[in-house]
Design a protein around this nucleic acid. Structure first.
Lengths: 118, 118
DNA sequence: CATCGTTATGTCCAATCAGATATAACGAGG
DNA sequence: CCTCGTTATATCTGATTGGACATAACGATG
């Protein structure tokens, strides 16, 4: 078993969702302090990263990411209080969910091609 | 809260995955005895339903759906033993997973636009 | 007031995806 | 041996998606 293999999506009204990709992006923004640096780290274009942030901000009642242009640090971005809370909740859902269904996931993996004998 | 809003995907090697859509399709095939009838029930084209079945069969070590053409019933499809087991495991993952993270999901929903006051 | 890296936004294009459509094979039963 | 509804497969097309590229705004600092 190489990766997590269990991905949890939280779908909100309108079809948008929060999943592993956007959660990782939030984490990268928190650590790098910039949307573009986070995008580079994750191997995606700035535009893609920015559009994901736009989606995230629209999904919740208050923005998850605050950003500024120009200035001393030449602009940047950071998680808001809501953003940090959403990320924390999503990580908790990931870990608690994975733990709760570990047995069934293992059983499924034994049936999948991932466990094909050599 | 209108819908489930929590969607769990099991990603296997190669990028294919088992999620709510394919699980519902398996269930519909089990109940209708036909790929095309299951597709009609779910509002998708036969081609789409069939290609999903093809993907499912390739994801696991043995096929989940067996099918036949012609004959008395003019052909049809059914779940194999593996197919029934996979569906059962996925449903268990759905319910156990949702139960384990219900608190965090509720907290996230309170932050989301889904709980915007009127 | 010029500089800098970032945010913000638009346009264009290739790739992918799903729907629509068409056709053939199937094979027990009438 | 013809019929039937289904499986199986191919082709075409419109829609969506993401990458590439371009441009402008920003604003504290030097």
């Amino acid at each position: 078993m190489t990766g997590p293999a269990l991905k949890i999506r939280l779908v909100v009204e309108g079809g948008d969702w929060l999943g592993p990709g956007k959660a990782d992006l939030l984490e990268a923004i928190a650590e790098t302090g910039s949307i573009s640096a986070a995008g580079r780290r994750m191997g995606m274009s700035y535009k893609r990263a920015w559009s994901l942030v736009e989606t995230l901000n629209a999904m919740f009642r208050s923005p998850l990411v605050s950003s500024s242009r120009g200035g001393a640090g030449h602009g940047g971005a950071a998680l808001t209080e809501s953003g940090a809370e959403v990320l924390r909740l999503y990580r908790a859902i990931q870990s608690k969910g994975a733990e709760a269904v570990a047995g069934e996931v293992a059983a499924l993996h034994r049936l999948s091609v991932m466990s094909a004998e050599k």
